[in-house]
Write a protein that binds this DNA or RNA. Sequence first.
RNA 1: GCCCCCUUAGCUCAGUCGGAUAGAGCACAGGUUUCCUAAACCUGGGGCCAGAGGUUCGAAUCCUCUAGGGGGCACCA
Length: 568
Amino acid sequence: MEKTIYNSLIQIISKVQGLDINPAEDRLIEIEMPRQETFGDLSTPVAMTLSKRLKKQPRKIAEEIVELIDSKDIYEKIEIAGPGFINFTFSRQFLSKKLSELLISGQDYVKEDVGHNKKIQIEFVSANPTGPLHLGHGRGAALGGSLSNLLRETGYHVVNEYYINDAGRQVKLLGLSVYARYRQMSDAAYPFPEDGYRGDYISDLAKEFVEISSKDHIDSLTEDDLVSEITDFSYKKMLNEIEADLEAFGVVFDVWQSEKELFKGNSTSEVQRAINDLKDRNYIYEQDGALWFRSTEFGDDKDRVIVKNDGEYTYFASDIAYHRYKIEQKYDELINIWGADHHGYIPRINSVIEALGYPKDHLKVLLVQMVTLLRAGTPVQMSKRSGEFITLREVIDEIGADTTRFLFLTRRPDSQLEVDIEVAKAQSQENPVYYVQYAHARINSIFEKAKETGAVDLGADADSGTGLYAVKLPDFNPDLFNDEEMRLIKKLLTYPMVLKNAALAHEPHRITFYVQELAGMFHPYYHRNRVVSEDRALTATRLNLCKAVQIILRHGLKILGVNAPDRM
RNA sequence: GCCCCCUUAGCUCAGUCGGAUAGAGCACAGGUUUCCUAAACCUGGGGCCAGAGGUUCGAAUCCUCUAGGGGGCACCA
């Protein structure tokens, strides 16, 4: 729909007198969905944009443009309105033709090639493997998972990556905490590390370790070896749990990159090679016995230490190596999704990208704001150390993965989110996710009915339980569509535009809103119009529309990572 | 002290890289089932877009300041 207008405008504007520009450049031609129906189906403010350059009145320019549009059969009318908008209203024939295309190509109809197969890596969650994922991680997971679905559907080659902080102090602390719990099993007075992890899962890990290890084996180890074995066991166990939780949440990673790996090989390690690289580029110097990275060169507040005066690498050192490693994989674009509490880290990581010779925007950091957790109105303290936190798993079990994902994706990532567990549970009957899913299921049920009456033949070799997706539809007669149905069709045909814009903006939540709007049009339609009736031609026509709605709903939900059930 | 994000209806939030008269859902009040699923539908009231300036044909949107909320400013991770 959008493309039809865009292409004709491109042609026309290049013919407009006195214009010395390429209309394809500068996003000169914008096409938007007007908020009022009286303003047509799509509209463009391009005449107003051009008025500056042409020094002519917008309405005059609009008139010239409209004059030159020749494909009158596509539009029912083209109007100039307000300060100079050109409003397009499509013809019934054109819209019906587009509807047929949608029905014929199904899910493929929406394939918008925005990405042109660009390689893009998204790193997200990357929580320390020192405990279960909490709800905040869930928000990052929901965004990352859906963004990667969105970009894949719009022609990008996407790799999802999880960076495992398995080398630093936190993992050591995990090991020491579990070790202390192990010792306490026989000696209750054994001291617990001061900033150790205090959650119940620590004791569970200790117990499990004892269960799988023979006593002889444990006794044969020195204390240091035992600690390191426990550490290894513990973080791997946590990592498995994290992976399982993410899978239950519908998020799958292509690559699990270990930080430890970056240190392998000493002088030839990724970390060392990254430091050497920066040294060669003159961004490294020594001071006070430490090694510094000159990040102020690129706008950071202060230079950053990468090797401390005790010879230990900082966390930042492996981060430099990791990002250099990413760059070497020849991605066209890198995306990191971080919790907002890490935002202070952005300038220094951008400095790394620039120091390595890449433009700053080669890496985009998307921040996910904090999730404040409430239980019946009172905040739940979240602290891994004290062990007081609500896990993602717990929330999935209580309110379901679909609801949780949908909830996260109905907010812009950069606004803080309050989740009241009790409210989320209590509202489960009125939750917007069910509203959308129900529309999908309801359409299925209409087709079941149609099958009973013999109006349609549900194929047996289907890709879904009921066979709806293999159904052979009877022909429809576009003249039978009423106004409400035409509105629904127009809404369906704007979906590719929404998808494209969401992909460009990296904003999956736009799909959430679209899908709610579509369901919000379908339910009332259903109540006012009987689909399956005595009238064969009308039934056929309406079934086609229902299927189109379902195709789009299913596609949208797929991007969000939410199930599209056949029955509820 | 410095930096980042947020502030839109009673509540939770949208608002398309500046566009036409600012929108949903929830909540609240009332109504709908001999009919393809009532997890649905219909009707109704609701707004100084935090405040003040500025930029321009046009500002909830961009800039400056102020107020409130959250977060960050390590040779920690």
